[in-house]
Simulated scan of single mutants.
Amino acid sequence: MPDDILSVASELVEMTRLVADDDFGATMARFVTRIVRTVPGCDDAIITVRSAAGVETVHSSRDLGFDPLVPGPIVEAVTFGEPRRLDDVANDQRWPSFGTQFVNAGYRSLLCLPVSTAGENSAVLTLLSTEPDRFGEAAYDPVLLLTLHAGVTFDNASLFHDSQELVIQLRAALRTRSLVGQAQGMLMRHFGYDSDRAFELLKRTSQNNNRKLRDLAATLVDAHEDGTFEDALIELGLADRGADDVSPASQAR
């Protein structure tokens, strides 16, 4: 590992910094790039995640030339939450299929360490080298320190990613609410309904036409803006609706 501890500390700070403009993939890409730059003899790095959907590689620093999900040390490490080390693939035959792909891709040694994460998913940081015996006991503890920071990076990135997804969903919900409200107001004006009866008519029309309420509302709003509102009502079976066309339940209100 680097003799200058300040250099390592600087890298750790950079690894755990989540920039607002980053997405999940960009954060992971930046992390593995810094791992490769920080650890002597490390030619590539992979973060592998095990979730309810299965095992997948989140990011590698480049095209590896082998499948990291072939049964072997990486899959075992992420499945059992235990470290795995391959000192020299030429002398270690524990994972023959994996070893064949590994050596054909030009690699000789690797180190897999579980990443401590706050969520339900488990993750593993894997360091790869084209040289044998690159990740012995002397490198184990410093690399373990890196995995602790990998956990922080992973959790931060996951949280940011989930937050972005939530914002997208909320925006979609607000847009839906706005569209439905606009369509509701148009029906109120056109038929002289109150808000409850107009909304009831929207729901019934949505069911009768097998269309989502959001899509139906968007159709009416777009038709109003295009000057084809009357044509849209005819197409949807809403032309010349009267008060008696709304369900008794809504009339009771």
Rank of each mutant, 00 (worst) to 15 (best):
F160R: 13
G99V: 10
E120R: 14
H190A: 01
A198W: 03
A173Q: 13
S97P: 04
E56N: 10
A52L: 12
D244A: 06
L110H: 03
R241G: 04
D245F: 05
A26I: 07
E235Q: 03
R253F: 11
L125P: 05
L170A: 15
T48Y: 03
V143Y: 10
V143P: 08
S206A: 15
N210I: 10
L170I: 09
L86G: 05
D43G: 13
L145H: 14
T117W: 04
W95I: 05
V70K: 07
V221M: 04
L159R: 12
A90P: 03
L220P: 03
V39M: 01
S116L: 15
L216Q: 05
Q93N: 14
P40D: 15
G136M: 03
A118K: 13
L128C: 09
A157E: 10
L145P: 02
V180Q: 12
I47Y: 07
Q251C: 05
I46W: 07
N209Y: 07
S51A: 13
N104K: 10
P71K: 02
C42R: 05
L187V: 00
Q164H: 15
E76W: 05
E131Q: 11
P71R: 12
F135W: 00
R37G: 09
F229W: 01
R34A: 13
L201R: 03
F98D: 01
D231R: 07
V143I: 15
L220H: 00
L148T: 06
E131W: 00
G227D: 08
P40G: 14
V180C: 08
L111R: 00
V152C: 03
P114Q: 14
L144G: 04
T48S: 09
L236D: 00
S60N: 04
A9Y: 12
E165S: 13
V115E: 07
L201G: 05
H59A: 02
V246A: 07
A139Y: 09
D244G: 05
D244K: 02
S7P: 02
L220V: 00
S158C: 08
A232W: 06
F98M: 08
L213A: 11
A232G: 08
V19C: 06
A217H: 05
L159K: 04
D244Y: 00
M15S: 03
F102T: 00
S163L: 07
R94N: 11
N91R: 14
S206H: 07
S247D: 15
V55F: 04
G185V: 00
P40Q: 13
E235F: 06
E120Q: 12
S178Q: 10
S7D: 13
L18V: 06
R37F: 11
Q184T: 06
D67R: 02
D226K: 08
T126I: 03
Q251N: 15
E137Y: 04
D133W: 02
A45R: 03
R197W: 01
V49I: 08
M186L: 13
T205I: 01
L202W: 02
P68Q: 01
A173L: 14
R175T: 15
I74D: 10
F24Y: 14
T126P: 08
Q93C: 08
P83S: 11
S178V: 02
R241C: 09
L12P: 10
V124A: 15
